[in-house]
Design a protein around this nucleic acid. Structure first.
Length: 424
RNA sequence: GGAGGGAUGGCAGAGUGGCCGAAUGCGCCGGAUUUGAAAUCCGGUUUGUCGCAAGGCAACGGGGGUUCGAAUCCCCCUCCCUCCGCCA
């Protein structure tokens, strides 16, 4: 959420942000200005009336019976008026809040112009793309032949975009996740196990709601939502708190299951492990002081944390600077890491590193006291550390052998307990 | 699922109808003292809004009610806690 004061003073910049993000918001901004102005015109009026009401009550004690009569009459009259204005005040506050929740965060100047992911700007490519010397198979063929993936039974049981991992695929997944978790712990991140079902405020606070309701599974009976990412509980962890300066930055990492309805993606990536309803993810979150320059540094930090893992596993990848049109509502800037997937003959998104400034923390009321003792909103950031089974696509396909077996990347072997997967 | 208790400033915690935007303690910030530190003392330490400023005003989980007047009494909602039951 943007600072209402800032929006008041920079409406054109907000509209420009909407344009750059391809989420036009001119009307919302204009309506905000109206409501905001109406509210600020109303407040002094209500407040002075309430003050008058109070002081009349105080005078009552020392008043003569005649005066008392007059005071009473005045109070009776203004009481009705105060109530009416109070209702109006609440309506305006509510509407202003709703409008604010729909405004986009301001993209950084470094965010490239563009309409969709085709316009993302490649920052770097890392790693050699392997020349197989035979025609490589996709992970579905590989996995089914190795007996470690089963899509058919999963679809029967749970619908499309579901899967069973079996045998060594299970252990490989565990290995990758644990390797990723260990890497982040070693970087000073505190590991957490988090709630997967959360209240609405956490979804709103992290800016998935309003707007993302269709992508989330909801348990209506209990008014809880299944998280689509560990970012939600991690970022919300300190909700409502005022942190001490000495406790910043807060670095958290969690492994969690993630659930996504994938509504509106029919026909897109329908096969295999790429786009599924349920997956596991290790996620990193940083909360730090409100300093844009430092936030850029943190952004690089969380990006390279993840790049290091891909490098260690020997997976080729590229990093792209996500363009305005491909950016979500809450981000200031986003880097996607895309890992090479032979079956796609291209890079597939495996990581997404975002910085938000105080867009989330303002909603979540996560603050800290700065050097001068002033209370300010923290800045938040997050990035995927590893997401599985999507990363398994890259591992299985890049490390396949001509006979259909798969070699395990060296760094994962101690975690797996085996060095290859072959047909049983 | 049943019964009860609670929500006040960064934290703890007083306040049960006007004298309360709010005691006290702790923490934090600034200053004094000190060779330095500890201790001690003094001052400051929520947000919004109006105002150039000084300063004013409003807000005690949220909403409604009673009252001339509500942090305080009543009702509803939300959240938290305790006990019992059930349970991995």
């Amino acid at each position: 959420m943007l600072d209402p004061k800032w929006v008041r003073e920079h409406p054109d910049e907000v509209k420009e942000a909407g344009r750059k993000k391809r989420m036009e918001c001119d009307q919302v901004v204009d309506r905000f200005l109206e409501v905001d102005e109406a509210l600020r015109a109303l407040l002094p009026e209500v407040e002075s009336m309430r003050a008058r009401q109070k002081s009349l009550g105080r005078e009552m004690g020392s008043a003569t019976p005649d005066q008392r009569e007059a005071l009473l009459r005045e109070q009776k009259e203004s009481k009705k008026r105060i109530q009416e204005l109070g209702v109006r005040e609440r309506e305006l506050k509510q509407e202003r809040e709703d409008l604010l929740l729909h405004l986009p965060n301001i993209p950084a100047p470094e965010v490239p112009e563009g309409a969709d992911d085709n316009d993302n700007v490649e920052l770097r490519r890392v790693g050699e793309i392997r020349d197989f010397g035979f025609s490589p198979k996709d992970h579905i063929t590989l996995g089914e032949r190795l007996g470690i993936l089963d899509f058919k039974r999963a679809a029967e049981m749970a619908g499309t975009r579901n899967y069973f991992l079996k045998g060594k695929a299970v252990l490989l997944e565990e290995a990758v996740l644990r390797f990723a978790l260990d890497h982040l712990i070693q970087k000073g991140f505190e590991p957490m196990t988090v709630p997967l079902l959360v209240r609405d405020f956490a979804m709103v606070g992290t800016a998935y709601f309003p707007g993302g309701e269709e992508q989330a599974y909801r348990c209506e009976k209990d008014e809880l939502n299944l998280i689509g990412t560990g970012e939600v509980p991690l970022t919300s962890y300190h909700q409502g708190e005022i942190l001490a300066l000495k406790d910043l930055p807060v670095r958290l990492v969690a492994r969690s299951v993630c659930f996504r309805r994938e509504a509106g993606t029919y026909g897109k990536d329908t096969k295999g492990l790429y786009r599924v309803h349920q997956f596991q993810k290790v996620e990193q979150v940083i909360l730090d002081v409100a300093d844009p320059e430092l936030s850029i540094q943190r952004h690089l930090e969380i990006t390279s944390n993840s790049e290091e893992l891909l490098q260690a596993m020997g997976l080729p990848y590229r990093v792209v600077n996500v363009c305005g049109g491909d950016l979500g509502q809450p981000q200031i800037q986003k880097f996607d890491i895309e890992t090479w997937m032979p079956s796609r003959e291209g890079y597939g998104e495996t990581h997404s590193a975002s910085r938000f400034h105080d867009f989330q923390t303002r909603r979540l009321k996560i603050r800290y006291k700065d050097e001068e003792g002033k209370t300010r909103y923290c800045y938040s950031l997050n990035n995927t550390v590893i997401a599985s089974p999507r990363i398994l696509i890259a591992i299985l396909e890049n490390y396949q052998e001509e006979d259909g077996s798969v070699t395990i990347p060296e760094v994962l072997r101690p975690y797996c307990g085996f060095d290859r997967i072959e047909r049983q």
